[in-house]
Amino acid sequence: MNPEHASGYVDRLATAAKAKVAMLERFRSRRNADDPALLKQQAERKAISDARDIRNAERQAAREAQAAQAIAEKAAAKQEKIALAAAQAAEAAAAARRAAALPAEQKAARDARYAARKARQR
């Protein structure tokens, strides 16, 4: 075996061992679940998340209220159109009754004038 290759192999083994030790130290130095700083950080994240959920719920409620208002406005406009159409129909029916009654009134007035003229001639 070539001594140059052997020293490279030993160097690689030493580097790998150092990396394993460093990983183990990083793992051991991690905060425990009971660490007050970690608990505080988790509480802050939970508060931020809850506030975001509340804001989203408020936005959704506002969108739903706006949609309900739009539906109510459309229904009111439709009701107004129906009322206007009913008023126009009633007005048209009254005009038709007046138009139908007009010839009869004119005939009655003509007959009255004729009768008055005949009465004066006698």
Rank of each mutant, 00 (worst) to 15 (best):
A85L: 03
Q88R: 12
R120Y: 15
L38G: 10
Q69L: 11
A109W: 04
R98L: 13
R52T: 08
Y9E: 15
Y9R: 07
A57V: 01
Q41M: 08
A87V: 10
A47C: 01
E80R: 10
A16R: 01
A92E: 05
P103T: 03
D34A: 05
R31Q: 07
L39V: 13
A70C: 08
E4A: 10
Q41F: 09
A62Q: 07
R52S: 09
A76R: 13
A16S: 11
T15H: 05
I71K: 07
Y9Q: 14
R30C: 05
R97Q: 12
E44V: 11
I82S: 06
D11E: 05
L84C: 05
A89K: 11
K40C: 05
A37N: 03
D53S: 14
E73V: 10
A90M: 07
V10G: 04
A70M: 04
K74S: 10
A77P: 04
A99H: 02
A108F: 03
L102F: 09
D53L: 13
Q79L: 08
E25P: 01
R120L: 14
P36W: 01
A96K: 04
R59H: 15
A77M: 14
K40A: 15
I71S: 12
R120G: 14
A70Y: 02
D53A: 15
A61G: 03
I71D: 12
A33S: 14
A33D: 14
A70L: 02
A14M: 08
A70K: 07
R45H: 15
A33W: 09
R63T: 01
A112H: 07
E64F: 00
M23A: 08
D50Y: 07
E25W: 08
R52D: 09
R97A: 09
I48G: 09
A47H: 02
Q60K: 09
Q121D: 11
A67R: 10
I82V: 10
E73Q: 09
Q69H: 12
F27N: 12
D35Q: 03
